[in-house]
Design a protein around this nucleic acid. Sequence first.
DNA 1: TCGATCATGTAACAGGTTACATGATTTT
DNA 2: AAAATCATGTAACCTGTTACATGATCGA
Lengths: 181, 181
Amino acid sequence: MSLTYALLTALAEQSATGYELNQRFKERLANIWQASHQQIYKELAKLLDRGWLNVETIQQPDRPDKKVYEITPIGLEALKQWLNEPQSLFVEKNPLLIKFFAGQYLDLELFKQEVQQVRLNLAQKLQSFSVIQQLYFQELSTLSSHYQWQYLALRYGMMSLEASLKWLDEVEHQLKQLDLT
Amino acid sequence: MSLTYALLTALAEQSATGYELNQRFKERLANIWQASHQQIYKELAKLLDRGWLNVETIQQPDRPDKKVYEITPIGLEALKQWLNEPQSLFVEKNPLLIKFFAGQYLDLELFKQEVQQVRLNLAQKLQSFSVIQQLYFQELSTLSSHYQWQYLALRYGMMSLEASLKWLDEVEHQLKQLDLT
DNA sequence: TCGATCATGTAACAGGTTACATGATTTT
DNA sequence: AAAATCATGTAACCTGTTACATGATCGA
């Protein structure tokens, strides 16, 4: 459901091919929604069928043909309607946390390594977000409101990563305690 | 996939009916994984089929019969194996954040109300988590390691809620700025 | 020459949601 | 009298993942 509107939003900003959308989702939108290229192509076909998108096929001499999608007026209407419906901030899916309910069965050494790895991944992501912040959102007040909105989405990503890292500190502290007992 | 192991974990702690599991997911596990009762019943049937669970049907005089599921040795083995595989901390699904990429199309008044409502929901959840913390996790050092693990899962929930609330402060601040321009 | 990048998909399957269905007991 | 609780599910549909498929160009 939400992927539909994530795509419409992306296309309302700028027409694009499935390939380009996939890249945007991997980069700037990684924060918000995960989607594979297969899912994106399938969804684009569906939206085209429904008349929410138009497509223009562009021949390229030395590259495969590409299909540029643009949002139609009725697509935009559908998006606007969705925007007025309340949405939840996040969906609870925390696979790692399941392990904390099976603590007694965990291999502690392996788990410590996993926690270390998770920390590295999160720290790296946070790092890349703060690079984006530096690059694009330095002079916030001079930016159009369009980018000020996007900045807030980035802030959510950063703040939730910071919270996760702080939590990992507690986890590691606790793991050390367990070692002593 | 993870629902499988969330159920196995819950049943490794204590045998239960589908109904009871549904309740645990709504209460203590709401933090970690969302699942409807339909999905839980379907998954239990699958796991039973696969031999990872056993079931005992219990007749009750003035209530519908109930089926108590327990984990089998091979179910426990499967769980232990999963526990040794790395898992991600969260899955990126943030429907509300999509809206921040379509800021120009938002109805500001409606959106402000939505943000208010989201704040209330999160604050309420945080409140209920801190009640649990007070009730069950006061004397942490006297608890078995089993409950110390669970405490960490609760902490994750609390810390990520706190971060979300702090983020909402930034959002509301920004919304006020927009009003002035 | 090997892997990455550009560019698009199909097919099978697994996971998850919504609507529908039943029916007794207990609480408001 | 109505709503909530206990207790279990089926069916249809939608969403998402994994595996497979193709083929050219470009940089190391």
